[in-house]
Simulated scan of single mutants.
Amino acid sequence: MNTTIKSPKVYLIGAGPGNPELITVKAVKIIAQADVILCDRLVSPEILETYVNPNTEIIYVGKECSKNASTPQSHINTLMVEYALQNKAVVRLKGGDVSIFSNILDELQVLKQHRVPYEIIPGITAALGAAAFAGMPLTARGYSTSVRFLTYYKSEILSDDYWKELAVTNDTLVFYMSKGNLSALVEKLVQLEVSKDKKIAVIEQATTPYQKVYTSSFDDFKENFGNKNFASPSLVVIGKVVNLHEEFSWLNNAEQEGLYFKSVENGSLISNPQNFFEYAV
């Protein structure tokens, strides 16, 4: 199918979980024709190096809340509208999928308010990429009835009744943006007598050359990982499916240390000078 983009228009695109080969064909075609790209932090630098036209303007609008160094959402909204009203094709490029734990609603509302045409292009979200590269089918028969995508970046985000339900459910739980509160999360579920046949997995920098997977029982988590500072981004998987990792993992933990994604400082992105794209099993 021939994909020809139109302007003025904003394309909200998911770039996938890290591995540059996990971006969709449609996304690549649109990126190659864009006039302006507003790029998040968790986007592979190889995607920009490989698919973006040299004449395209790239504006980094990264967010890294743990460092209090984020581009204000209001500024991103303004850039989208201003460039579109200049009769340009604008790509709003986000890591993972654009609709999972992103500010897409704010962006859709402002585009609608200013009558700017838009299109949503889905991507592989971090949970699916991380689970696949860790050998953990999220809804494996006999291990899980369904999967929930959650976040726990502040304590009041989940009610007491919901915590009780999470402790007893057979669903696989995937927590985004929760590594900073991981010890509290684990302690809460232990207090609510979470089942002993469930385990915890923390997947650092999933699908990238720096991917590492750490697993533990609830009883041993504090001793094993209570004081560990996991690299960003890290995804947390809780459930019986974590037990499948040891048997079906096909990618060894990375031997090299480092950060794959760019870091945010003073509202801008600092490039990582080292790019590694060889995936050793």
Rank of each mutant, 00 (worst) to 15 (best):
M1I: 08
T3A: 02
K6I: 05
L12K: 14
G14H: 00
A15S: 13
G16A: 06
N19H: 12
N19P: 00
P20A: 01
K29G: 03
I31K: 02
D40L: 06
R41V: 09
R41N: 03
V43K: 04
P45K: 14
E46F: 09
E49C: 10
T50K: 08
P54Y: 05
N68Y: 01
N68A: 07
P72H: 06
P72I: 04
Q73K: 11
H75D: 01
N77S: 15
Y83S: 00
L85M: 14
V90Q: 02
R92K: 10
I100H: 06
I100V: 15
F101G: 00
E107A: 07
P117I: 07
Y118G: 01
E119S: 07
I120V: 15
L128M: 13
G129S: 02
A134F: 02
T139W: 05
R141H: 14
G142H: 13
T145G: 12
R148N: 03
F149M: 15
T151S: 15
K154A: 11
S159V: 09
Y162K: 08
V168G: 06
N170F: 08
L173V: 04
V174C: 11
K179G: 06
G180H: 11
S183F: 06
A184D: 12
A184H: 10
E187G: 07
K188M: 11
L189E: 11
L192E: 05
V194L: 12
K196G: 02
D197I: 04
K198P: 04
K199S: 11
I200N: 03
V202L: 11
V202W: 06
Q205P: 01
A206T: 05
T208F: 00
Q211T: 08
Q211D: 13
K212R: 12
K212N: 09
V213L: 08
V213Q: 01
V213P: 08
D220R: 11
K228R: 13
N229F: 13
N229Q: 15
I238Y: 07
K240V: 01
N243D: 10
F248S: 06
F248P: 01
G258E: 02
Y260N: 06
F261Q: 02
V264H: 03
N266Q: 09
I270W: 00
S271D: 08
N272R: 02
P273E: 05
Q274C: 05
F276L: 13
F277P: 00
F277K: 15
E278A: 15
E278R: 15
Y279L: 15
